Amino acid sequence: MKAVPKVNTDGLYQGVELVDDAFSGVVPFYVPLPEPEELDGELPEVAGYVVGVPVPQGLVRVLI
């Protein structure tokens, strides 16, 4: 297992997620949907991404 960063859709760090050592790539994660009877055909909204590839150095957004 390895820890990879999770970022939101603005590119801000949201924490880490443990994934298999073979994981590579960028995979979206979604906003939790309500119960099935409340969906009304709603599609899941992308909340951010799990990033399993090296990020270029200096690609950090600092909020002051």
Results as ranks from 00 to 15, higher is better:
M1A: 14
M1F: 12
K2F: 07
K2E: 08
K2S: 11
K2W: 08
K2H: 11
A3P: 02
V4P: 09
P5S: 10
P5V: 10
K6H: 04
V7D: 08
T9Y: 09
T9A: 08
G11E: 05
G11D: 07
Y13C: 08
Q14K: 15
G15W: 07
V16E: 14
E17G: 04
L18I: 13
L18T: 14
L18M: 14
V19Y: 09
V19C: 06
D20N: 14
D20A: 15
D21E: 14
D21S: 10
D21H: 09
F23C: 02
F23T: 01
S24Y: 09
S24I: 06
S24N: 10
G25T: 05
G25F: 01
F29E: 00
P32E: 10
L33D: 04
P34D: 03
P36M: 02
P36Y: 05
E37V: 05
E38N: 06
D40G: 06
L43P: 00
P44A: 08
V46S: 05
A47R: 05
G48I: 03
G48V: 01
G48N: 01
G48Q: 02
Y49W: 12
V51K: 03
V51R: 05
G52T: 09
G52H: 06
V55F: 08
P56Y: 07
P56I: 07
P56L: 02
G58P: 10
L59G: 01
V60T: 12
V60H: 11
V60C: 08
R61I: 15
R61C: 09
V62N: 11
V62R: 13
L63Q: 14
I64D: 13
I64T: 13
